[in-house]
Structure formats: C-alpha cells, structure tokens
C-alpha cells in the first residue's frame, strides 16, 4: 500500500502538471469571478468564501478522471486486482494520492487567493480549516465516480455529472463554515457536519468504489 502511494506520488511529480494544473485552474477561476460580477469590494467580500470553495471544488473535479483511467489503460488495475492488495485499499490509496497532489495544494493556495477577493481577516483560518476538512471527501467521492466510469472512453463529462450532485452536502457545509467564519459568526455546527460527512465518506465509500471497480474489471 505504501509502495502504491509512493509510486502514485512519484508519477504525479514526474508527469508534471499534476500539481500545477489544478492550482492554475483555481487561480484563473478566482481571477475571472471579479470580471463576471464587477470589482466592487463589498460584493467580492460577501461572495469570497463561496467562490473560493467553488473554485477549489472545480479544480478538484478537473483531475478526477486521471485517478484510475491511466492505471486502467496500461493494465495495472487488472494486475493489482490479482495482487494481494485489497481493492478497497487500492481505491483508498488512490484517493489519498489524489488529495495530496490536488486537494492539499488547493488548501494551501486558498488563503493567498482569498486576498484577491478581499476575504475578511477572521475568515482565513476557517476557510483553510474547512477546505482541509472537506477536500478529502471530494477526493474520495471523486474516486467513486472515477471507478464508475473507468471503462468508458469519454467518461470525463459523465464523471462530472455523477460526482457533482454528490458534492452538494460537502460544498454546502464547507462554504457555510467559511462564510460564517468570515462574518464573525460561530461556525462550529457546519464544521462538525462537514467533518462528519468527510469521516463517513472516507469510512464507507471505498467499499462502494471497490465493488464498482470489480464490476468494471469483469
């Protein structure tokens, strides 16, 4: 399992673009928003938490189809399915590798981009915390979507259609934490809900992902 994580991280680093692309996309989304809604500072301050969360979510979505598709194409998935690794473990590690290469950089970049949107001072820790808690769920859910669509030639669009509705609760609670934090309100309730959803997703969804992957490998 450790070997698989190490291999996936090495591949992400060497193939290049893995980290960079998601981050660049995040940056561009955040830059485009003021062009769309106008440059008034109060408006940007009001929508900053939501825009940052949405931008991170879309950046995360961008690389989901690569989680399993590459290993499918070169036959690694077949070989892993016949190896001693349980597929539940494989999909968990895949999700973890995706989070480390995509989610974690987004979490770290979000406060910097918050400056561009005039996010109020108290919002920064809550934004970072909510993203740090929420993005693992996005990766795990994305792996489920990737497992569903792994055998399809043009699965990318379908993957988005399947995964985005599943992202709704995470987005709602995550953005709510950031919004309440920015407004100086108590964000504890949505924070606990967000943490609950993430924990539940990480604990249960790999079983669904592995089951789906087994069906697709048949």
């Amino acid at each position: 399992m450790i070997a698989l994580l190490r291999r996936d991280l090495a591949l992400a680093v060497r193939a290049g673009g893995g980290f960079g692309l998601g981050l660049a996309f995040f940056l561009i989304v955040v830059v485009l928003v003021p062009f769309g809604v106008g440059p008034e500072t109060p408006l940007l301050t009001a929508i900053a938490p939501g825009v940052l969360w949405l931008g991170a979510l879309l950046a995360c979505l961008l690389s989901l189809d690569r989680i399993l598709a590459l290993d499918w194409e070169d036959g690694s998935l077949d070989l892993m399915a016949t190896s001693p690794l349980p597929l539940e473990g494989v999909v968990t590690i895949k999700a973890l590798a995706h989070w480390v290469t995509t989610g974690l950089p987004l979490v770290l970049a979000a406060p910097v981009l918050g400056v561009l949107l005039n996010l109020p001072g108290p919002g920064y820790p809550w934004l970072t915390l909510s993203l740090a808690l929420g993005t693992p769920a996005l990766s795990v859910l994305g792996t489920f979507g990737a497992a569903l669509t792994v055998g399809l030639k043009r699965g990318g669009l379908l993957l988005s259609l399947l995964v985005l509705p599943l992202y709704v609760p995470t987005l709602i609670f995550g953005a709510e934490v950031a919004r309440r934090g920015a407004a100086g309100l108590d964000p504890m309730t949505p924070l606990l809900m967000l943490a609950g959803i993430t924990c539940g997703t990480i604990a249960l969804l790999p079983f669904a992902s592995a089951a789906v992957l087994r069906m697709n490998l048949r």
């Binding site: 070997a3 291999r7 090495a10 591949l11 077949d78 070989l79």
Partner: peptide
C-alpha cells in the same frame, strides 16, 4: 497474471517498476 498490457509506468525506470510490483507482492 500477465495480459496484453504490461502494467508499466512509462515515467518510472525499469528498476522502479519492478520494485513497485515486488513490494506489492
């Protein structure tokens, strides 16, 4: 099992590819 596809990663060296599968097994 060995199929038509070899399950190799083109960005990894020969040693790394083999070591990966060795540690998986």
């Amino acid at each position: 099992y060995a199929a038509h596809a070899d399950g190799l990663k083109s960005m990894l060296t020969v040693t790394e590819n083999l070591s990966f599968w060795a540690s998986v097994f």
